[in-house]
Every structure is written in structure tokens, then in C-alpha cells.
Design a protein around this nucleic acid. Structure first.
Lengths: 133, 133
DNA sequence: CGGCATCCGAAGGGATACTG
DNA sequence: CAGTATCCCTTCGGATGCCG
């Protein structure tokens, strides 16, 4: 980040905005990051992300492919065999994701705790939660 | 990141998952990143993010506050004056966001182009786009 | 195994109007 | 200026079922 006192921006809050368009989607960052390990088959991806449905996985995979982040290789054999690989662009994005990963690891305890707090906060009577502070 | 050939993972794709919970939301990363410049008023945030509605901005701000990423200070004066500041935790998250920002800047041209491509792809007849591939 | 289509509920998020 | 509330449409995303 530049001087942090001069990073205003015309329409973008810097490239962050651009990046967000690409990684938008509940599973994309996870998919991308998982793929840094190397090419992986559909099934492996599905097992790795754990929780994602076929629909979502396929959808995100397609968008990622359309965005030039990954490439799909169909071996055209039976039983079906397909694998997904990060493109150079995708790889660079993955490494940019690393700090976020590290942050999460470093603060996982806090995050876990916070998430619980938030859940409680959200369960608060939507009436006029201004009180309680 | 480590060797990129040895960063598998148990149930989490590393802390990335945890981080994603915190920055989930169309505007959060932008808000966080904008705040690294220092404390900012509601209006400044609104102008900076540009495109966000009051509803969304307030909502995300509240969640960020609940998550311990930012703090809100109400000067209790009139006309109203409130400002938001990154907590140490928030600051650390912001710096983890920097690489993403840089990636976006570095690849903005490509991303912009890709986005157009995707828009075109999405406009494709949803019938059975299996063809043409 | 890998993938697609459909249905459906939940959440996201914009527009507008109102308050102090 | 800062924030709240409501309406309402869109997107996200999960469950299920079917196909090559």
C-alpha cells in the first residue's frame, strides 16, 4: 500500500475493488488457494472445500475459468476424469491470498470467538438494538 | 507462503476460511482498507466506497464493529459526528489485504477485460451452453 | 466420476422515505 | 450529518434428481 495518505482513488479503492470482483463468491478464495498445491480433480476439490454443493463448485469453477484464473483439462476418458489447474495469473492471485490465510490462522481463536459473539448479536431483538451498547 | 507444495490442510483450507467469515460482505474489504488511512467519518466512508447505500454501509460497519475490526466513536454533538477507527486487529487485517490490492492494481487491465468477457459469457443462452466450448 | 437442471428458501442489497 | 425502517427484487446457494 502506498502512503496510506494518498491512496484515494477515482472509482476504485485501489485494485482491491478489481480483485474483489474476481474472488467474489463464497468458495472462490478457497478453491484458488487449494489449487496452489497443484492440479486437482473435481472430486478432490469437492472434498477439500467440504460443504460446497456440485452446483456451486461447478459454477465457481466456470467463472474462475472464464476469468482466466484456472484452466480445465478433460481427459475424455471413462470413468470421467477432469482436473483443474491454476494459470499463472491464478497462481499470482493465490499468493496474494496467502497473507489473508496467515491472518486467519494467527487470529483464528479470536475470530471463532467473535463469530459466536456476532451470532448472539444478530439474535438480538431487531426492534431497536440501539440500547445495550 | 510455504513451499506451495506442502500446505495441505485438515478441515480448513488454512485460516483463509476464518478470514473469509470476517470479510464476507460486498463492502467490508473496501471499508477496512479505506480505514488504514486513519479514522474516518461516516460521510467520508460513504464517499470513499461510492456505490454503497446507507443501509449497507451501516450494516457492514456494525458487523465490523461487532467483530472487533473497527471501533465507533460518537462525539455526541450536533450536527452529528461519528468516526470509525481500525482496531489493532483490524489494522493487521488491513495489511493482510494489501497484497490483494496490489494484485488488483497490477492486473487491473486484465481483470477489466476478463469481467467484460464474463459478462458476455453469462449472457450466453442458458439452454445447454455445453456446445461451443 | 463429473456435471447439469430445477426448485426453493435465505440472504444480499438497492430505493425510498423518515428521524433527530 | 448520521442513522433507521420498509418494501421488494436479485443473487446466492443448498437439496434433490438425472445423465453420460
Amino acid at each position: 500500500m502506498t502512503n496510506a495518505t494518498d491512496l484515494p482513488a477515482p472509482g476504485f479503492s485501489c485494485g482491491l475493488d478489481a480483485t474483489l470482483r474476481v474472488i467474489a463468491g463464497k468458495w472462490k478464495p478457497l478453491i484458488i488457494y487449494f489449487l496452489v498445491q497443484g492440479p486437482n480433480r473435481y472430486g478432490a476439490l469437492k472434498r477439500a472445500v467440504r460443504g460446497v454443493s456440485d452446483k456451486m463448485l461447478i459454477q465457481q469453477l466456470k467463472e474462475l475459468e472464464a476469468d482466466g484464473i484456472i484452466t480445465r483439462h478433460d481427459y475424455q476418458e471413462v470413468p470421467p476424469r477432469v482436473d483443474y489447474t491454476l494459470t499463472p495469473l491464478g497462481r499470482s492471485l493465490a499468493i496474494a491470498l496467502a497473507p489473508l490465510c496467515e491472518w486467519g490462522s494467527a487470529n483464528m481463536a479470536a475470530v471463532t470467538h467473535l463469530l459466536e459473539e456476532r451470532a448472539r448479536w444478530q439474535a438480538t431483538p431487531p426492534a431497536h438494538a440501539t440500547a445495550g451498547g
